[in-house]
Design a protein around this nucleic acid. Structure first.
Length: 571
RNA sequence: CGGGGCGUAGCGCAGCCUGGCAGCGCACCUGCUUUGGGAGCAGGGGGUCGGAGGUUCAAAUCCUCUCGCCCCGACCA
């Protein structure tokens, strides 16, 4: 491709509304333009990258017997009403009406559509398992789109759905998917973690996220520095405390005056005890009413773990007013002793004795509190947030690291959630009517490209990993109007194209500085700079974008080495 | 949805407080000179100042309403 023939409107300055580096660089490199909040036009250079990512995804999906389909983006309300999600999905679902007043939505995901098709066509265990996928535009009317195409409302997504006769088959495909996803992100040149995840509103019971580690990520990932355990921090397991060898005598329960001392820090200082010997009582509101959670003073409660523990639909910390109204206890002095709420304790609390809690009245705390003697606990479980440096729950030597991550992929086993509500049955070998077991698997295509930029850039611009670069080689003639330079550039261009290498030739009349800066901004992995002086000596300059190392090579001999050089850049 | 910020040329911004010719840099067009890291000179084009209403002799500027966009918190590929 000649630069003058491809539309790449680059910018010197970053747009004012861009916050993260991938957004800034994609706009500056002329890959995307915003149309409305969370809605973008993809320009030719951007599309080349997305197509590269898509192609990698296709190859990996096909390798595990996924079959590509294409489903409608506009979906009838009836199917969503049948699955129960028409009401449940909320405002994120963009609802529209056709000219007859019939209700539709713009698909945020396609379980309903695909399940509807499969239930009509698949009747026998002989037709299972079946894995179908598509690469298509989704629309989710997010409350707050941000970060360019990393979190748009309209976005390109690969979504796959699998149908199975039993759990074992579903798990097999799930493992295949996990492998395929690892290949996809590896091939895209990303550093990522496969992390244990919450299954969210889609439901189900078996779920991993693929998180690209980057400071701009919106998720916090906890992972072991020694083994391969990794989890979304929301779910990251704490290691069980070793059973207390603490046979010291139990002190008596004693009320002490703690005027105005509410926070753990204040109470610890006032009573001269360490925060580990104080137990925080957090009151949370949920669809099952108010509950209390106990964690050690130096820990934080994890509402998601508690929510899952009690099987609530929703749960969040109650505000001070609700606490005061419902428990008659002022915020800051709530304690489990005699509290008229269901109390759940973290395992670390279960291992304590002689600790401090609120006394359920203003300006007072208890000391010498014992779990078994002084309170009624519904359940002792892992309900705290892990923090960096905590011991790994899976291995003996490792400790937790915490980093931010961008969720680029997510795999679930859905179980029979949709086959049940939408009646997707089949006949098993015994002629018995059974529900299909389903899985679903998504990759954010644009988000993957954006994540690649987050991980691969410098102050000059993008540094594309070779497999998803819009072009592999960027030829930059110092002066394309000089005949010798033009001839050499044209012939290098032709020879590389014959080798099936994608080449961008900067044939613009602009000054060298403009072309070099644009080249660094666009981030094509290998630059070939062709100038008259070097050419007279039979040389051209090869510059690796990533390392910025530039070397003179024999021309045209070096052209034969380009495929090898590109291969080397892969590692 | 709650809290904060911003809408002035394609992009980045000043002007607004204290009302009085709509400006600067980049980009764009023409010409000449330049040509290895975002050139110089000269000339030129481009604006319903987000929109509506109000106050005023006069509104980008003050007031009211409204729309859009961005950022911070609960959701997600």
């Amino acid at each position: 491709m000649h630069y003058s023939k491809i539309f790449i409107p680059t910018l010197k300055e970053s747009p004012a509304d861009a916050e993260v580096v991938s957004h800034k660089l994609m706009v500056r490199a002329g890959m995307i333009r915003q149309v409305a909040s969370g809605i973008y036009t993809i320009l030719p250079l951007g599309l080349r990258v997305l197509k590269k990512v898509e192609q990698i995804i296709r190859e990996e999906m096909n390798r595990i017997d996924g079959q590509e389909t294409f489903l409608p983006s506009i979906q009838p309300a009836e199917l969503w009403q049948e699955s129960g999600r028409w009401d449940f999905y909320g405002k994120e679902l963009l609802r529209i009406k056709d000219r007859h007043g019939r209700e539709f939505c713009y698909g945020p995901t396609h379980e309903e559509i695909i399940t509807d098709m499969v239930r009509k066509e698949v009747k026998s265990y002989r037709q299972l398992p079946l894995t179908l996928y598509q690469i298509q535009t989704k629309f989710r009317d997010e409350v707050r789109p941000r970060y360019g195409i990393m979190r748009g409302r309209e976005f390109m997504m690969k979504d796959a759905y699998s149908f199975h006769a039993d759990d074992a088959s579903a798990k097999e495909t799930y493992q295949d998917m996990a492998g395929a996803y690892s290949n996809i992100f590896k091939r895209c040149g990303l550093e990522f973690k496969m992390v244990v995840a919450d299954s969210g509103t889609i439901g189900g019971n078996f779920s991993h996220e693929f998180a690209v580690l980057a400071d701009s990520g919106e998720d916090h990932i906890g992972f072991c520095d020694s083994c391969d355990y990794a989890s979304n921090l929301e779910l990251a397991e704490a290691k069980a405390p070793s059973p207390s060898a603490d046979n010291t005598e139990q002190d008596d329960l004693k009320e002490v005056s703690t005027p105005g001392k509410k926070s753990v820090k204040e109470v610890a200082e006032f009573l001269s005890v360490s925060p580990e010997k104080i137990v925080k009582t957090i009151v949370l509101d949920s669809d099952q009413g108010l509950v209390a959670g106990l964690v050690r003073g130096d820990h934080e409660i994890n509402p998601i773990k508690l929510k899952n523990l009690i099987g609530a639909e929703w749960l969040h910390p109650a505000d001070a007013k609700t606490i005061a109204e419902k428990t008659d206890v002022p915020c800051g002095f709530v304690g489990p002793v005699g509290l008229k709420l269901k109390v759940f304790a973290d395992r670390e609390v279960g291992a304590l004795s002689n600790f401090v809690t609120g006394a359920n009245k203003t300006d007072a705390h208890f000391t010498g509190v014992q779990v078994d003697r002084d309170m009624k606990i519904e359940k002792i479980a892992d309900i705290r947030k892990v923090i960096e440096g905590d011991p790994c729950p899976r291995c003996d030597s490792g400790t937790y690291q915490v980093k931010r991550g961008i969720e680029v992929g997510h795999i679930f086993i859905l179980g029979t959630k949709y086959s049940e509500s939408m009646k997707a049955h089949f006949l098993d070998p015994n002629g018995k009517d059974s529900l299909m077991v389903m899985g679903c698997y998504g990759v954010g295509v644009g988000r993957t490209a954006a994540a690649a930029i987050e991980q691969n850039h410098d102050e000059k611009g993008i540094i594309w990993p070779v497999p998803i670069a819009p072009f592999a080689v960027h030829i930059i003639p110092t002066n394309y109007s000089q005949e010798a330079v033009k001839n050499a550039s044209d012939s290098a261009y032709r020879i590389l194209q014959e080798k099936n290498i994608e080449v961008l030739l900067d044939d613009r009349p602009d000054r060298m500085g403009v072309k070099l800066n644009d080249a660094d901004l666009l981030g094509i992995p290998l630059q070939i700079i062709i100038g008259p002086k070097n050419l007279e000596a039979g040389k051209v300059e090869l510059k690796v974008r990533k390392t910025r190392v530039s070397e003179l090579h024999d021309y045209p001999g070096v052209l034969d080495n380009i495929p090898g050089i590109l291969d080397d850049l892969l590692s």
